[in-house]
Design a protein around this nucleic acid. Structure first.
Lengths: 221, 221
DNA sequence: GCCTGTGAAGCTATTCACAGCT
DNA sequence: AGCTGTGAATAGCTTCACAGGC
C-alpha cells in the first residue's frame, strides 16, 4: 500500500483485478519454465497494453530490466506481498447449491492463503457433511462460526431472496469483504467491501455487444 | 442507440451494466405495485447516485417529470428497446458442470428474449438428456448446432484448459458475444465481444479490500 | 535497436451546480 | 419545495512520448 502524508492511497479496484490476473498468468507460465517476461508479453496474455502493465508494476513496486524484462518469480512474490494477507485467511461460503459447489471445486487448494474453511446451507441433508474438504454447517450457526473462526471474507451464493439476510449475518459475524453472486444489490454498512458477480448482467451485456457488430477495422474490445 | 453521422456511438459497458441492473430492480418493484420512481430512489436501490441515474436515463432516451419522477413501465420498456434484440435470441451454454447447471437453473424463463436453447458437454451421460428444458448435445456438434440455430451468444463454463478451444468453436459457429466463466483470458478475433466473469479474481479482490489495515509500507528500491 | 520507468497529455466517467418545471 | 435535464467542472484511468540503459 502506498501512503501520501498519513493517508492511505487505496489502490483502485481495476489495478487489483489486473494484478490478480497477472499472477494467475504467471503461475501457469512458470509451469512451462519461462523465467522472465517482457511487459508486452504479459500484456498480450492479459489482453492489455504494455504501458499499462508497466504502470501496474510501478504500483506494486516491481522493477524489471530492459534486457530481460521482469523476473516472473519477482512478480509473483511482489503480487503475493501486495494482495495476500500475511497469514492464511479463511473464507465462508453460504449456499451449497450448484453455484456454491462449483466455487468450492474450483478453489480446492488454489491459493494456499485464501481457503474456504466453512460452508453453510439451510438444507438439512447437506449439513454435517464434508464437501470438498470443507465442513458444512446449518445456516443458523453462521454468525457464531464466522466469529469463532475469525473469518473476514464471505461468499454469498444463495437465491436472491435470501442474499440480504445472509449478508447481514456475515457482517454481524465480522466479515469485511463480500462476494455476492445473487442478482441483487446488497446493502452493507460502510467499511464492508462487496464485489458483485452478476452473471445475468454479463449475459445481457454480451448479447447487447454481440448485436453491435459491423464495427470498422478497429480491433480491441 | 445513438448515432453520430453514420457511425454508431457505442454505449459504454458501464452504462449497459447499470441499465440491466435498473431493469431487474424495476421488475421486482413492479411486483410490489409501485408505478413511479424518483431518480434518487432508483439510485438507492442500485447503490449509485441520483445524477448518474438521470444521466443513464438520458442515454436511453427516457424522460421523467419533476412531479412524479419516472414511470416504471416507461423505463422497463425503454430499457427493453435499448438492450434486447427485436426477436428472441438463443444462447449456447458450453459445460454442464455445477456452474453450467447453476446458470441454467437461474435463467429458466427469466428473460423471454434471451434463452439458453442449446447446451454442450463432453460427458456422454449428459448428452441427449434435457436439463432445465434445454437439449444437451455432444461437444463435437457445437459448431454445427450453433450455426444451424443462428446462435450469437455463448457462455463458456468449462475448465480453464478447454476454454480457448470452446471459444474458438463458438466463434467459428457464428457467435459474436461470449461470457467466459473460466479463469483464463480468451483470445477472440476483432468483432467478437467477451465479458469475463472471474470469481477467483473477485474473491481475491474482496479479501484485499477486506483487509484495510495499516499494513506494510512498500520500501526497498 | 528494443526494453523499462515515468511525467505529461488525453480520455472517459462521474459529479457539481443550476436553470426550468410543476 | 423538490424534482428533472444538462452544460461545465472534476476526478480517475489510460495512453503518449521520451529519457536512460543494455
Amino acid at each position: 500500500m502506498e501512503w501520501v502524508g498519513d493517508r492511505a492511497m487505496t489502490t483502485p479496484e481495476r489495478v487489483i483485478e489486473r494484478i490478480s490476473l497477472y499472477r494467475r498468468l504467471l503461475d501457469s507460465l512458470k509451469g512451462e519454465g519461462q523465467a522472465t517476461i517482457f511487459s508486452h508479453e504479459l500484456a498480450g496474455l492479459a489482453r492489455g497494453t504494455a504501458t499499462q502493465v508497466r504502470r501496474d508494476m510501478m504500483t506494486i513496486g516491481v522493477t524489471g530490466s530492459p534486457a530481460h524484462g521482469y523476473r516472473a518469480q519477482d512478480l509473483i512474490d511482489a503480487i503475493g506481498l501486495y494482495l495476500d494477507s500475511p497469514e492464511p485467511e479463511g473464507v465462508a461460503l453460504v449456499g451449497i447449491g450448484n453455484l456454491g459447489r462449483a466455487i468450492m471445486a474450483f478453489f480446492q487448494g488454489r491459493r494456499p492463503n485464501l481457503r474456504i474453511v466453512a460452508a453453510f446451507d439451510v438444507s438439512p441433508e447437506k449439513v454435517g457433511r464434508v464437501i470438498h474438504g470443507c465442513r458444512c454447517h446449518p445456516l443458523d450457526d453462521l454468525e457464531r462460526v464466522v466469529r469463532e473462526e475469525g473469518i473476514r471474507v464471505g461468499v454469498v451464493a444463495v437465491p436472491a431472496s435470501a442474499a440480504q439476510d445472509v449478508a447481514d449475518r456475515l457482517v454481524r459475524g465480522g466479515v469485511r469483504g463480500l462476494v455476492n453472486l445473487a442478482p441483487v444489490r446488497l446493502h452493507v454498512p460502510p467499511g464492508v467491501h462487496t464485489t458483485h458477480v452478476d452473471i445475468t448482467m454479463s449475459l445481457e451485456k454480451a448479447a447487447y455487444f454481440a448485436r453491435q457488430r459491423a464495427g470498422r477495422k478497429e480491433g480491441e474490445p
